[in-house]
C-alpha cells in the first residue's frame, strides 16, 4: 500500500465553549489513502470531537487540518464535505427523506445534480448497500441496520474518497452491526475508499489496518491491531476491552500453553494450537 496521506492533523487543539478542559489537545497524525483506520477510546475520550473537526462541523482553536490537499477552512469546507461522507450514530436522526429513495437523493439534490443522473446514482448506491428492494420504504418500517445502510448509500451517491463512521454501529443489534460492517468492508475493497471508523467496539477495530487509541483528548497510542492489542491490561485501564482471541490466548499462556504471539482472530489461534500442540 502506498502511504500517501489523505488527511493530516497537525497540533490540533479544541475546546468547547464554557469548558475548562481541552476536548482535543495537541493531536497530530496522518490518515493514509485507502486505509481502514479505527479511532478508539472510551466515551468522552475526544474521539467524537475528532469526527466533528474532520468534517468542519467545528474548527480547531489551534493547529491545522488538511483534507485531500486542501486546508480545512470555512471557505473550503463545502468542497471538503464533497470528499468526505459521514455516517452518524443515531440511525433515525440522520434520515431526512420520507422514503429510502428520497433520503439517498438528499445529498445529490444539495449538490444540484440533474434529476436523470440522480435516479441512476440513487439506484446504484442502494444496490451497493443491498437495499435496492426498499426504494419506496418509509424509515419507520426499517431496522436500525437497514437505516444505517441507507445512510451509507446516501454518502456513496456523492462518490466521496473518505467515509467516516462516527460510532455508526453502536446503537445496532449484533445482526445490524454485522450487516453494516460487511457492506463497508465490501465497498472499501471495490472502491478504494478510505474508511475512518470511530468506535469503542474492539472486535470491529481488530479488523482495521491501523488503530489510534485516544485518551483524555490526546493520541495515546497508534499502531497496527497487533501492536495495540499487545497493550493488554493497559487498554482495559483506558476503559476499553481486548478482543476475545487475545483474551483467551492470554489465559492459555497462564495455563502453561506456549504461544509465540497475540492472535487477532480465533482461526489463527486455533490453527496455532493445532500445529504446535497436537502432533506430539
Amino acid at each position: 500500500m502506498t502511504k500517501k496521506p489523505i488527511i493530516s492533523l497537525n497540533d490540533v487543539c479544541f475546546q468547547y465553549d464554557g469548558q475548562d478542559n481541552y476536548a482535543l489537545h495537541s493531536v497530530t497524525f496522518d490518515i493514509y489513502e485507502g486505509e481502514w483506520l479505527a479511532i478508539v477510546g472510551h466515551n468522552g475520550s475526544g474521539k467524537s470531537t475528532m469526527a466533528k473537526l474532520l468534517n468542519g462541523l467545528q474548527f480547531p482553536n489551534q493547529g491545522k487540518i488538511t483534507v485531500c490537499g486542501l486546508p480545512l477552512t470555512e471557505e473550503n469546507v463545502w468542497d471538503i464535505r464533497k470528499q468526505l461522507g459521514m455516517v452518524f450514530q443515531n440511525p433515525d436522526n440522520q434520515f431526512v427523506g420520507t422514503t429510502v429513495e428520497d433520503d439517498v437523493a438528499f445529498g445529490l439534490e444539495n449538490m444540484g445534480i440533474p434529476r436523470e443522473e440522480m435516479v441512476l446514482r440513487v439506484q446504484d448506491s442502494l444496490k451497493k448497500v443491498k437495499m435496492e428492494q426498499f426504494l419506496y420504504q418509509e424509515p419507520h418500517h426499517l431496522s436500525g441496520g437497514q437505516k444505517q445502510r441507507v445512510a451509507i448509500a446516501g454518502v456513496l451517491a456523492l462518490s466521496p474518497s473518505i467515509i467516516i463512521l462516527d460510532e455508526a454501529t453502536s446503537m445496532l443489534d449484533p445482526r445490524g452491526r454485522e450487516e453494516v460492517l460487511e457492506v463497508v468492508r465490501d465497498l472499501k475493497n471495490e472502491n478504494r475508499l478510505t474508511v475512518i471508523s470511530i468506535t469503542h467496539d474492539l472486535e470491529e477495530a481488530a479488523k482495521a489496518d491501523r488503530i489510534i487509541v485516544m485518551n483524555k483528548g490526546e493520541v495515546y497510542r497508534e499502531g497496527t491491531p497487533e501492536e495495540i492489542f499487545s497493550m493488554d491490561e493497559e487498554l482495559i485501564k483506558l476503559g476499553l476491552d481486548i478482543p476475545f482471541s487475545v483474551k483467551i490466548g492470554k489465559a492459555f499462556r497462564q495455563k502453561g500453553i506456549d504461544l509465540p504471539k497475540h492472535y487477532l482472530t480465533e482461526e489463527e489461534l486455533v490453527t496455532e494450537l493445532w500445529t504446535s500442540h497436537s502432533h506430539k
Binding site: 472510551h42 466515551n43 453502536s170 476503559g239
Partner: peptide, 8 residues
C-alpha cells in the same frame, strides 16, 4: 448497556 463503552 446499549450504547455504553466496554467499561461502562
Amino acid at each position: 448497556t446499549a450504547g455504553l463503552d466496554p467499561r461502562g
